[in-house]
Amino acid sequence: MMTLAATMGCSQYRFIHSLYSLKKNSLKSVSPLSGWLGLLLFLFFLSVRSVAAETPQVKVASINLCADQLVLLLSDEEQIRSLSMLSQEEAGSYFFERARAYPVNEGHAEQILTLQPDLVIVGQYSNSHTVAMLREVGLRIETLPIANSIETVFENIASVARWVGHEDRGSEVVEKLRLRLKNLEKPREPKPLAAGYDPNGYTSGALSVRGQIMEYAGFSNVASLAGIDSYGKLSLEAIINLQPDALIESPYSPGTYSRAQAMSQHPALLAAGLDPHVIHIPSRMTVCGGPWTIDVIESLQAERLKLMGG
């Protein structure tokens, strides 16, 4: 059993932010050189400021957990008017600590309206009445699709970056992530058989982010053998028949009773001589797609090597 370290975040964004602050600091430190030069620089600084004022930053509010995290990743601090309540939940939000610096909303039209954002990002399954209402009062609404593949995760990053007015940041993140994906060690045969295992036996197939993560990490997915494409239920019988080497779980309430752990100890499995290895991924890394998705692949790869070695 292992826990993935939640370290790699958006180091590339800290880099961008630091670039911005560098520019400002250097201007400030040069300005008091002499009277005229100082004035010139001051005027220059003013003009820079006024240019910035001409293209005001998009003020954004999000009522969807996955959008919250991409907004935190891709926009400037002062752009963010509000995030959804779930963004501060440790179990579901990768940036839960950073999200605590921002006001949160419960996804009511009233709350969003008083914030007067330029843009509201909603999810595909956000309350349709609220979305219709916000649209009716004339707010710009963008809908973040649910990511069903790593490619959609990249597309979502690019879309959110474009919506919040930082297209360049989006393409930079996606480029880096593509590079990391490309540089992953090519999984060698044999591929251990694994099953994603959520409470009540729900599992993810090849047409889902979690299924693709398993594929990239060099596991073959029990769901495909059981005929599950995207999302479905894996029966105990199927598990016994297909004999997975590992169960990959990502429970939303960590520290409580683990279903996969219990499943791996089911009398029927023990009687069948099966003792699948249980791999644990923090749910904040699997609930939504983002740069951390690639981290999950990398640590699953390490987990696979451990499994093959032992």
């Binding site: 009511h108 399954y125 309350n127 009445h129 009716e136 995207s230």
Partner: peptide, 25 residues
Amino acid sequence: APSPFAVRELVLWTLGDITDRSMND
């Protein structure tokens, strides 16, 4: 339902709610 999110939306709708209905409704 195609995903857990869809299940959630369907169940919540049946619970009964008047939040954010518009004059059109």
